[in-house]
Amino acid sequence: MQTVRIVIVDDDQLVRMALRLVIEGEPDLSVVAEAADGNAAITAVDEHRPDVVLMDVRMPGRDGLSATREILARPEPPRVLVLTTFDSDELVLGALQAGALGFVLKDTPPPQIVTAVRTVSGGNPALSPAATARVIAAATGPGSSATRRSSRDEARRRLSALTERELDTARAVADGLGNPEIADRLHISIATVKAHIGNLFAKLTVENRVQIALLVRDAQE
């Protein structure tokens, strides 16, 4: 069994300790370093070459967004899983747009955190449906940066490249559904859902499911 090497980044020592206890209890996961801010996170990544960085977004000094951008600009970077309390939605969005593969809430039950780490380590997004809906709501509210960046006409233009089934899949993603739920809604197999989502990434030139959902919401404005 290959061990997934993890760096935990959070300015709260108790949070780091709790996460370490959760992660170290799994035979295939190992915490190789901890960091209390973005600069320390970058140093830890350079020294330990982890597979996954569990990254807080709001920290004194260098925040998680800036650190995520620098880490992901490196050759063969680790996967980044954002950690948040949702008092900093814009930073979470920025981290996802920078290439982070997903996010978990700090009060997420331990088994779900473990699942998210494993999912991200395999190169797949780990986005909680409930958390995704909250980020989308923050991003598409009046005066938000995402609203300023993307007009309704541009979103509709990009979505027009999709087939009807791909568009149905995109709408289901925007509703926060996971692959099994999408398969049930559209009466198709999970393998077909994965194929449609792969097409969405390619046709819409997006990197994660949140970006798909934002385009759908922008098109509906």
Results as ranks from 00 to 15, higher is better:
A116W: 09
A95T: 00
S66M: 09
V53K: 05
R62N: 06
E26S: 11
L19E: 05
R152E: 14
G64A: 11
R158Q: 14
A191C: 02
L167V: 05
D89M: 04
T147G: 12
A213D: 08
L96R: 04
A44R: 02
T163A: 13
G64E: 07
P27L: 02
A67F: 12
A67E: 09
I188T: 06
R49S: 05
I23K: 02
N179K: 02
S150E: 15
L29P: 01
Q220N: 13
S189H: 07
S189G: 15
L96P: 00
L19W: 09
G61N: 04
L204R: 02
R152K: 14
T115C: 04
A202L: 14
A219Y: 00
I188E: 05
A172Y: 00
L65G: 08
V193E: 03
A183Y: 03
A137D: 13
V32L: 08
F201L: 11
V104L: 13
E207H: 15
R62M: 15
R217P: 04
I190G: 12
V120F: 03
E24Y: 07
P180Q: 09
R20T: 11
D89S: 13
L72V: 04
I182Y: 04
L81G: 03
A130G: 12
N208M: 07
V206P: 01
F86Q: 08
A33D: 07
I113D: 07
I8W: 00
G178D: 11
P75K: 08
R158P: 01
